[in-house]
Computed example of a mutant assay.
Amino acid sequence: MTINPARPNPAAMEFLATRRSRPAKTLTGPAPDRAALTSLLTSAVRAPDHGKLEPWRLIVLERAALDRLARLAADKGAALGIAPDKLPKGVAQFADSPLCVAVVYVPRSTEKVPEIEQILSAGSVCLGLVNAALAAGWGASWLTGWVAHERGFAQDAFGLGKGEWVAGLIHIGTEGSPPPERPRPDIDAITTWVSA
C-alpha cells in the first residue's frame, strides 16, 4: 500500500465506502428545514464546473408544491397516455415525498466547455446533494422517471427554459428502516491497470 503524503480523512473515506441511497418510498417527515437544506445545497454545488458556468439550477419543492405536482402528474400523465404501470410511480414520487429538490440542467453557450462536461457537472450536483444529505444524517434518493423526462409534463411542472431538462429529482427526508445492502461492482472486473 502506498503511503499518502497528504492529510487523509478516514471518516470521509469510511462514509464514501459505505454510503448508499435510501429508497424514496421509505422516506418520511420531517425533512430538513430551509436553513438545514441551504447548507446541503451549498455543499452540493461544490461540484466540478469547468469554466465556472453553473450549468444547473435548483428548484426546492416543499409540501404544497409536491401536492400540486402530484395532481398535475395524475391529470397530465393520463392525458399524455402514460402507461398504467408507470403513471402511479410518477404521481407517488411527489405525493409521498417529504421534500424534493429538482436539479435542472441549464446549457451554457460557450466554445470553451463542451456540452457533455456541463451535463456531467449537473449530474455531479445530484450526487453531491444526495451525499450531503446522507452525511448530515438524512435519507436521500436520486430519481427521474417519466415526470423528469416527459417534456410536456416537466416543462409545466418545473418551468423549464429552452434546452433545459431535469437531471434529477432528489428526495430528502427522515430515513425509515434501512434497506439491506445490495451487491456492488466487482472492481477487478471493471478496472484496467495501464503501467506503460
Rank of each mutant, 00 (worst) to 15 (best):
E175G: 15
D85A: 11
L61Q: 11
P88C: 03
A17F: 09
G161V: 04
G90Y: 02
G139V: 10
I59F: 07
D49S: 01
D156V: 09
P88M: 04
T26Y: 07
G128P: 03
M1R: 13
R34Q: 12
V91S: 01
L37G: 04
S121N: 11
A6Y: 13
A74N: 10
I82F: 05
G128V: 03
I82Q: 02
R63M: 14
E14R: 12
Y105Q: 13
A83R: 11
I172L: 10
D188N: 09
A148G: 09
W146Q: 08
D49A: 02
A6N: 15
P107R: 06
E164V: 00
G152N: 00
T191E: 07
I172T: 04
R20N: 07
A70L: 04
K89V: 04
R63Y: 14
V45H: 03
V104F: 10
V113C: 03
P98D: 00
A47D: 05
G152R: 09
D49I: 07
L41P: 02
L120I: 08
L40H: 08
L40E: 09
L99D: 03
P180D: 13
R34I: 11
V91F: 03
V45M: 03
M13W: 13
R46I: 00
G176R: 08
A12F: 15
L40R: 08
S141C: 15
R71L: 08
D33E: 14
A95R: 12
M1H: 13
I59Q: 13
V104S: 07
S97A: 15
V125A: 02
R68M: 10
R57H: 05
G29H: 13
L143S: 10
V130W: 02
L72I: 04
H171W: 00
V103S: 01
S39E: 15
G90A: 08
L37I: 02
G163D: 11
P32L: 12
K52C: 09
A133Y: 04
M1K: 11
L66R: 15
D96V: 05
R71V: 07
L99V: 07
A12M: 15
K112T: 09
G163N: 08
I170Q: 01
V194S: 04
D156W: 09
F158D: 03
D156H: 06
R182H: 11
F94K: 05
P23A: 00
P114Q: 06
R63K: 15
P5Y: 08
F94C: 06
Q118T: 02
V147F: 09
S141K: 00
V130D: 01
